[in-house]
Design a binder for these strands. Structure first.
Lengths: 83, 83
DNA sequence: GCTTTTTATCTTGTATAAGGGATAAAAATT
DNA sequence: AATTTTTATCCCTTATACAAGATAAAAAGC
């Protein structure tokens, strides 16, 4: 399952995708944490249980991974139900 | 400027896009708040100053607007520098 | 199997977001 | 321009995310 262009509807899905991106880049939680100024445990929490983490934090992580997001209507191309 | 497929790199950009989606649907902050079980003022804050709002809240709002997000590498198609 | 690395989970203290309630300010409608 | 609707901003209390520090648990490497 490709992480790319995967439609995300829940915090947990986002956490999983961020974890995938980090692994793709061969980075440890500690390394990423350094980049964004967070302790390793916070990266862990963000990947596993991100529901209550702040947007600021998420966007910092996205930047560190050279990623961005796009908002679109549900059911647009890439929807699993069409795969 | 079209909200659709607009690359988002900051919480504020996301807030603005969410506001745009809401207006497109002709919904007031109060109406949207009803849908997601939040008072109007919280919607206001989320649109204007979303940095410290939680993912859970954002995804609730996305659902109420029938939207989803996608994560992708920066500089992918749709990047303003290519427009 | 043992060691090292990586990730997950505790505790405690502190800062701040959330939410009710109220209201000011701004925009829209007539 | 007056009224109604919509949005932004106060106060106050409560709940909880955050952070540091420590450590357990799991994975990877030898």
């Amino acid at each position: 399952m490709d992480m790319k262009n995967y439609p995300i509807k829940t915090p947990q899905q986002l956490g999983a995708v961020l974890q995938g991106c980090r692994k793709t880049r061969q980075l440890t939680q500690a390394k990423v944490g350094e980049r964004v100024g967070l302790p390793q445990k916070e990266i862990s929490k963000l990947e596993l249980n991100p529901a209550n983490t702040s947007l600021a934090r998420v966007f910092k992580l996205l930047a560190a991974l050279d990623m961005e997001i796009v908002v679109r209507e549900r059911g647009a191309s890439g929807n699993p139900s069409e795969w």
